[in-house]
Amino acid sequence: MPKHVVPRLLRAHPTETWLVIVLAVICAGLSLTTTQFLTVANVFNLLNTSSVNLIFAVGLLVVLIAGGIDISFAVAASVVQYVAALALAGIGGGGWLSGLAIAALAGMTLGAVNAALIHYFRIISIVVTIATFNIFFGLLMFFTHGVSIYSLPEWWTRRAVLFEYQQANGTWAELTLPVLIMSVCVIATWVLIRHTTTGRQLYAFGDHPEGAKRLGINIAAMHFIAFGWLGLMAGIGGLVQVHYAQEVVPNALIGRELDVLAAVVLGGARLGGGRGTVLGCILGVFLVSVTQNGLNLLGVSPYAFKMIVGAIILAAISLSSAPLGQMLARGRQRWQS
């Protein structure tokens, strides 16, 4: 029944539906007020610039679903960048495949460190990852002395255009390699959590660890898969960020963890585990980046971006939690009667 689609969607995916509505309103407003927003170049630009955050976000989503939290992944990505730069110089340059392999391995190792501390010593994830945040960052800055690396293999920093399109005004709209890598990561995460037994087990474990344990789910595997997956995404995201920025700066990603966390939780992933979707995650990331992009096009001072983004998130959670939820519930009853 098409008439019942909206209430059913609201009941099944309240956060996602709510975010789609907000995002649609913002996009419609920006399309009407600016001439540049709804152009191919701008949409491609949005995708290019959101790639790294979205790769981190789907990784963090898996940990949140499994009932954990991770503060250390952005710093871990910085460590991976440095390790990869040194290792690639050691093997004489390498290529995308060897680069991805090194980044994936290094990232998963760091994720496994978190998982091991959480699982074997029963320390909760926020304590572990705040400790490893300091350990990773302190050691990285200590050994590198905060020095950046600019001489990187040529393949790593060369812009790789996947698809280009000449617009009516003659400028080129380009879709770059990070978008492809991001799409693969997003789809892989979606398959993992929606279409595998492991994925169902991650939800079950996040929702009720003791119950999952009594069902015979392997708890150690859950910890290592969740944090290993985030480590993998952190490694890949780190590699892509270097491709984008064309340099390795040891403290470039610090602070990113909290921005990504805000976007993922905004997308409906529950702190405490058991709930969260890839779609919500994408919507959360894009709500933030579309807002910033729109403010930019509207000519608002860049210094005001974060203030407005913060205010929007604060307003979104205030509205979406209590009063709006009740309003929707009333609306639902009216619909059904």
């Binding site: 939290i69 909290l258 921005d259 966390l261 805000a262 939780v265 905004l266 702190l271 974060k306 203030m307 983004v309 913060g310 205010a311 998130i313 604060l314 959670i317």
Partner: peptide, 11 residues
Amino acid sequence: ILVSLSMMIFL
């Protein structure tokens, strides 16, 4: 975490 985080981003 979410509320104080968005307050942090705002401030």
